[in-house]
């Protein structure tokens, strides 16, 4: 089975909230010296792909759009067991919106291989737009299952276990297909084996520029959606403390209830 996994490198989502900074001009997170990691669910997607490969044989290709540093994320994917890796990198791409990125990914995938399965994380751990996967499916004209956690191949098709609020659905899909992956206990990303880490350093990473995908510098804008990002802000959390006075516990309780009613909490 030929599987493509789309990854994104992001700033460690585990940094403390106090360390989170936004650039007011680009409206993006400032990377600073924070660690860069593969976005959480993308790692789960990679794990699902690797497990399928172990069961079925085949090849796993990791693809990402990003800066040069994103090779680190691809190396990690190679260390975990991906067979090849592709970095799509060109400065204008960093500004592209979700639709634009999905279209670029689609072109790259078409150019590279004819996959049976394309996996993405169900959402990125930085912007959480949850949309690149479905856009990608649309662009490639493929069926799409979102929020899958496990994939069983069955008679040339796949059965995806898809989490919903109160349980799960089992969804059958024809191949090729796009599945976006959520986490569960079966797809916790593996720790790469040390030999694979060392071997991954020597594996080549294919670099694609926009020109390689036939995208003119000016035409990227046309590929994008009509969404304009107006503003981003870090929510301000306020906590206030109020003491409820009262001579006896009963009195205090009574006043507390009154105050809570006043605040429309109860």
């Amino acid at each position: 089975m030929e599987i493509v996994v789309c990854l994104k490198q992001i700033v460690d989502p585990e940094i403390p909230a106090s360390e989170f900074r936004l650039d007011p001009v680009t409206k993006r997170q400032i990377r600073g010296s924070h660690a860069l990691v593969i976005s959480t669910y993308d790692e789960n997607a990679l794990e699902v792909a690797l497990q399928l490969k172990e069961k079925q044989g085949g090849k796993v290709t990791a693809v990402t759009i990003g800066e040069e540093q994103a090779t680190e994320a691809l190396r990690k994917a190679l260390a975990m067991g991906a067979d090849s890796a592709v970095l799509i990198s060109d400065p204008p791409l960093l500004e592209a919106d979700d639709l634009g990125k999905a279209r670029v990914l689609a072109r790259a995938i078409r150019k590279l291989t004819t996959p049976d399965l394309i996996l993405c994380g169900c959402e990125s751990a930085d912007w959480v737009s949850r949309i690149v996967g479905p856009f990608l499916a649309e662009e490639l004209g493929l069926p799409c299952v979102t929020f899958g956690t496990r994939i069983e191949p069955r008679d040339g098709k796949i059965v995806v276990r898809r989490i919903v609020e109160d349980g799960y659905h089992l969804v059958e899909a024809a191949l090729p297909a796009v599945v976006t992956i959520a986490s569960d206990e079966t797809n916790t990303p593996r720790l790469p084996k040390v030999r694979d880490i060392m071997a991954a350093v020597k594996k080549p990473i294919t670099l694609l520029r926009m020109a390689d995908l036939g995208i003119e510098p000016g035409s990227l804008k046309e590929m994008e959606g009509r969404i304009v990002l107006q503003d981003v802000a870090i929510p301000v959390r306020e906590a206030r403390c109020e003491f409820i006075e009262g001579d006896t516990p009963e009195e205090q309780a009574e006043r507390l209830v009154l105050r809570l009613k006043e605040l429309k909490v109860i």
């Binding site: 990691v37 720790l191 084996k193």
Partner: peptide, 23 residues
């Protein structure tokens, strides 16, 4: 176990992953 087989209790693996990602 850890380097050849990538096997360890879950919470240990998580600490190792964290060490690797963020030192």
């Amino acid at each position: 176990l850890v380097m050849e087989e990538s096997r360890a209790p879950d919470t240990i693996l998580e600490a190792l992953r964290s060490l690797e990602a963020r030192g």
